[in-house]
Simulated assay, not measured.
Amino acid sequence: MTERKPLFVPLKTKYYEQFEAGVKVSEMRPYGPRWNERTCFVGRPVTLSKGYGKQNRISGVITRFRRTTPEHLGAAQNDWIAVYGEDRNDVAEIFIRTELSQ
């Protein structure tokens, strides 16, 4: 199998710092053409970035993918609403093991 280009995931500072501290293990995005089972497959490398700058980056790998709804996010539902509003479309939840958590 050929090496796949890492999935680039820009994050707000708050969420980047949570990954950096090892307290965040998944990222949520609107499910669709960019964020789905085909693009976010288990084993794909990931580059988490604090915004779009090149200074703050964390490497990782996708360990699990889940398609769900905002109502099934539990406590993370508040973060979803803060970023995406009251959108009721499906959520792509991408579980990531980072180089910091290994």
Score class of each variant (00 low, 15 high):
Arg57Asp: 00
Glu93Phe: 04
Arg4Leu: 12
Ser101Val: 01
Lys54Trp: 10
Arg88His: 08
Val83Lys: 11
Asn36Val: 00
Gly85Pro: 04
Arg29Tyr: 05
Lys50Arg: 14
Arg66Gly: 02
Val42Met: 05
Asn78Ile: 07
Phe19His: 04
Arg67Thr: 06
Arg64Val: 03
Glu17Gly: 00
His72Thr: 06
Lys24Ala: 02
Thr98Leu: 00
Val46Tyr: 09
Tyr52Gln: 05
Lys54Gly: 15
Ile62Gln: 01
Trp80Phe: 09
Ala75Gly: 01
Gly22Thr: 04
Ala76Leu: 15
Thr13Trp: 02
Arg4Tyr: 09
Pro10Tyr: 14
Asn89Cys: 02
Glu37Pro: 00
Asp79Arg: 10
Ala82Asn: 15
Tyr84Ser: 06
Tyr15Pro: 00
Thr68Cys: 02
Arg29Thr: 09
Val23Thr: 12
Leu11Lys: 07
Thr47Pro: 00
Gly60Ser: 04
Ile81Met: 06
Tyr15Gln: 00
Val42His: 08
Thr69Lys: 12
Phe8Pro: 00
Gly32His: 05
Val42Phe: 10
Ser59Ile: 09
Pro33Thr: 05
Val61His: 01
Pro6Lys: 12
Met28Glu: 08
Gly51Pro: 10
Val61Cys: 03
Val42Gly: 02
Thr2Cys: 04
Thr63Arg: 13
Lys12Ile: 09
Cys40Gly: 01
Thr13Phe: 04
Gly22Phe: 06
Phe65Asp: 09
Arg97Gln: 10
Val23Trp: 01
Arg66Gln: 14
Val23Ala: 01
Arg57Pro: 01
Arg64Pro: 00
Thr63Met: 11
Tyr84His: 09
Glu71Asn: 10
Leu48Phe: 11
Glu86Arg: 07
Ala92Tyr: 03
Val25Glu: 09
Arg57Cys: 09
Val83Pro: 02
Leu7Tyr: 04
Ile62Gly: 02
Val23Glu: 13
Glu27Cys: 09
Ala92Asp: 01
Arg64Ala: 15
Asn89Glu: 12
Lys50Met: 11
Leu7Met: 10
Asn89Phe: 00
Tyr16Thr: 07
Glu86Trp: 09
Phe19Met: 08
Gly85Thr: 05
Leu11Met: 08
Gly60Thr: 08
Glu86Tyr: 11
Trp80Arg: 11
Tyr84Cys: 05
Glu3Tyr: 05
Ile58His: 03
Tyr52Val: 06
Arg34Thr: 06
Asp79Leu: 09
Thr69Asn: 07
Trp80Thr: 12
Ile58Thr: 05
Asn89Arg: 14
Glu93Ile: 02
Thr47Asn: 04
Val83Cys: 06
Glu37Gln: 02
Cys40Pro: 01
Val83Gln: 14
Ser101Leu: 01
Leu73Asn: 07
Thr98Met: 00
Thr13Ala: 11
Thr13Lys: 15
Ser59Cys: 04
Gly43Phe: 14
Ser49Ala: 13
Pro6Thr: 11
Gly60His: 03
Ala82Val: 05
Gly74Met: 12
Arg38Asp: 06
Pro45Met: 09
Asp90Gly: 12
Ser59Thr: 15
Ala82Gln: 12
Ile81Tyr: 03
